[in-house]
């Protein structure tokens, strides 16, 4: 899959997350008077939205790497981390909203139609950050967490503003919420996919086999390649590839290819690569052809 396709798929997953979380959010707001306090209500609503966002984004890797085996673990972990992110996100979002809202409420500033929605958007942004961050923590990648923060912040601002202004414009709160949640999911997903490209210094372009034409951005410090679904670049249906066959590490001066085991062979430009274990392995240059089993990649590095 190309990177553009990746963005589209991520965005669509985000939209699905927004659509799915909407009726449950509506339900939570509807039963709000039955909650004993605001804290419990905020936490519960955070969990509900976090579950759907986290679950959907957790499955995204499974969907994108076409590995059904990754779907279920990704979903389960996504649900857990999403719920936690949702709790923290909604609590802190609500706290900042109450703080800023009270400040604006008790002031005599003239631009309240801008200031109140902005305060709400900031609350949403905090919520988005936590959702984006939880996906980064789930995949244990600092870079992904950073991407999640940026994506979540921008998505939250846009989703929150859209919700607030649509609410004022349509006075149909539930329609505005649907739009807001979809936009939040869409932008978190979109920026997630988009930022991933922009922040990745290099990518692997698969040249052969079933998954030919796919690009894998190297966003993490350590990218594993193999036939097992636990690997970041998962190659099912290829021959002579071990479970965890090779890994690419990102150092300050560039990217290095190492074999994960002594029996695993990799080739760079048809020359065997002997780097294993703690050695740095072979330094990759832009345009290098990497062969693992019967899969061949072109390594592309941004200058």
């Amino acid at each position: 899959m190309t990177l553009a396709m990746r963005i589209i798929v991520y965005s669509l997953i985000g939209i699905a997350a927004g659509i799915l979380s909407w009726p449950f959010t509506e339900l939570m707001i509807f039963i709000k008077p039955y909650f004993p306090n605001l804290l419990l209500y905020s936490i519960s609503t955070g969990i509900v939205i976090g579950l759907f966002m986290g679950g959907c984004f957790g499955m995204s890797e499974g969907i994108i790497s076409i590995s059904r085996k990754k779907l279920i673990p990704g979903l389960l972990m996504g649900l857990c981390f999403g719920a936690i992110g949702g709790i923290i996100g909604l609590f802190s979002g609500q706290a900042i909203l109450q703080f800023l809202g009270t400040l604006i409420f008790n002031s005599n500033i003239g631009f309240k139609t801008i200031a109140f929605p902005l305060s709400k958007a900031l609350g949403w942004a905090l919520f988005g950050i936590c959702i984006g961050l939880s996906e980064g923590i789930r995949s244990r990648s600092l870079l992904k967490a950073r991407n999640g923060i940026i994506g979540g912040f921008i998505g939250g601002i846009i989703g929150g503003l859209a919700f607030e202004y649509l609410r004022l414009l349509l006075s149909l709160h539930f329609v505005a919420r649907l739009a807001g949640l979809i936009l939040l999911g869409l932008f978190v997903g979109f920026f997630y996919g988009l930022i991933e490209i922009n922040l990745s210094k290099a990518s692997l372009n698969l040249l052969s086999g079933d998954l030919k034409g796919r690009e894998y951005p190297l966003t993490q410090r350590l990218t594993t390649i193999g036939s097992s679904p636990v690997t970041a670049i998962n190659l099912p249906g290829y021959n002579n590839i071990d479970d965890i066959h090779a890994e690419i590490t990102q150092a300050k001066d560039g990217f290095y290819l190492t074999n994960s085991g002594p029996k695993n062979l990799t080739y760079v430009n048809d020359d065997p690569n002997k780097g294993t274990g703690k050695e740095k392995g072979k330094k990759l240059e832009d345009g290098d052809i990497i062969r693992i089993g019967n899969a061949q990649f072109e390594f592309k590095e941004k200058k």
């Binding site: 707001i29 509807f30 709000k32 605001l38 109450q98 009270t102 709160h173």
Partner: peptide, 12 residues
């Protein structure tokens, strides 16, 4: 009066 806005507003 005091401010008590929530993230998701009023219900249906």
């Amino acid at each position: 009066d005091y401010y008590a806005g929530t993230m998701f507003g009023k219900p249906q």
